[in-house]
Amino acid sequence: AEKTGIVNVSSSLNVREGASTSSKVIGSLSGNTKVTIVGEEGAFYKIEYKGSHSYVAKEYIKDIKDE
């Protein structure tokens, strides 16, 4: 089941290729951006990003809701 969340950062949140802080950064999301969460892996959520799937750190996503 998909969930949505809100990016909870003051500046921007790195979007990564994989579920690791050493993964390549492929983009960023600004605070209060709504994201669609399709899964989770460790400390990361797998999200829909620009037509494919990428990862963001869970600690920076708030207001998780089931869609």
Score class of each variant (00 low, 15 high):
K46H: 04
K46E: 06
Y45C: 03
R16Y: 15
R16T: 12
E2F: 15
G27I: 03
I64L: 10
N14E: 15
V15G: 01
Y45R: 00
E41A: 08
D66F: 14
I61R: 00
I64W: 09
E40N: 04
R16C: 10
R16F: 15
I37N: 00
G42N: 07
I61D: 01
F44K: 00
A43C: 12
E59A: 12
V9R: 06
E40D: 07
A1L: 14
S52R: 12
F44H: 03
H53E: 07
S23T: 06
G18H: 14
I64D: 08
I37D: 00
I37K: 00
E48N: 10
Y49Q: 01
S54F: 11
N32G: 15
D66I: 14
K50S: 07
A43K: 09
K34A: 07
E41T: 08
G31T: 13
K46I: 14
V15M: 06
G18S: 14
E48C: 14
S28P: 03
T4P: 05
S28D: 06
A43V: 08
D66M: 14
Y55S: 00
T36Y: 13
N8R: 10
D63Y: 12
I37W: 01
A1S: 13
V15A: 03
D63S: 09
E48Y: 11
L29Q: 01
I61F: 05
I26D: 01
V35S: 00
T36H: 11
K46P: 00
S23D: 06
K62E: 09
L13I: 15
E67A: 13
I26Y: 02
T4M: 10
I26T: 05
V38N: 04
S28M: 11
E67R: 04
S54I: 03
E48M: 14
I64T: 08
E59I: 12
V35E: 00
G27P: 01
S11I: 12
S12F: 14
T36W: 13
V9M: 07
V35W: 02
I6A: 04
F44Q: 01
K62P: 03
S54M: 11
S23M: 04
I6Q: 05
G18A: 13
K46L: 10
E2C: 15
K3Y: 09
K65Q: 12
A19T: 06
I37L: 04
I64G: 07
R16G: 03
I47G: 00
S54T: 05
Y45F: 09
K65A: 11
Y55W: 11
A57S: 10
G27L: 02
T4Y: 14
V15Q: 03
F44T: 01
L29V: 08
K50P: 02
N14V: 15
N8P: 05
S23I: 02
Y60R: 04
T33G: 04
I26F: 03
A57W: 08
L13R: 02
F44C: 03
K50F: 11
I26R: 03
K62N: 10
Y45S: 01
A43T: 09
S54D: 02
S52T: 13
E41R: 05
S11V: 12
S52V: 10
Y49E: 01
D63W: 11
E40W: 05
S22I: 08
L29C: 03
T33H: 06
G39N: 05
S11C: 15
V35G: 00
D63E: 15
E48R: 10
G5N: 03
I37A: 00
K46Q: 07
Y49L: 03
G51D: 07
V56P: 00
E41C: 12
K65P: 10
K65I: 12
V7D: 02
A19W: 05
A1G: 14
S54Y: 13
E67P: 12
T4V: 12
T33V: 09
S10C: 15
K58F: 03
I47D: 01
L13Q: 04
S54R: 11
R16M: 15
K58N: 02
K65D: 12
E40M: 07
R16P: 01
K50V: 06
K62W: 09
S28Y: 11
G42E: 06
D66V: 14
T36S: 09
V56F: 01
G39M: 03
G31S: 14
K65E: 12
Y45N: 00
K3I: 10
L13H: 03
N14Q: 14
G5T: 03
G5P: 02
T36M: 09
K34W: 08
G18F: 14
G27V: 02
G39C: 06
I6M: 08
K65L: 11
S22P: 03
K58D: 00
S20A: 07
S54P: 04
N8M: 14
A19K: 03
T21V: 12
K24D: 06
V25S: 05
Y49R: 00
V38T: 06
S23E: 04
I61N: 01
D66K: 08
S52F: 10
S20C: 08
S10K: 12
N8Y: 10
V38R: 05
A43N: 13
A19H: 05
I37Q: 00
V56W: 00
V15E: 01
V9E: 07
L29Y: 02
D66L: 13
R16I: 07
S20D: 09
K3M: 11
K50I: 06
S28A: 11
S23Q: 04
A19Y: 04
Y60M: 07
A57G: 09
G42R: 04
E2N: 15
G18K: 13
T36D: 04
E59W: 07
G51A: 05
I26L: 07
S28V: 13
E40L: 06
E40P: 01
E59G: 07
V15Y: 03
H53C: 08
I64K: 06
S10H: 12
S23G: 05
T33N: 05
E17K: 06
E67S: 13
K3N: 05
K24C: 08
V38H: 05
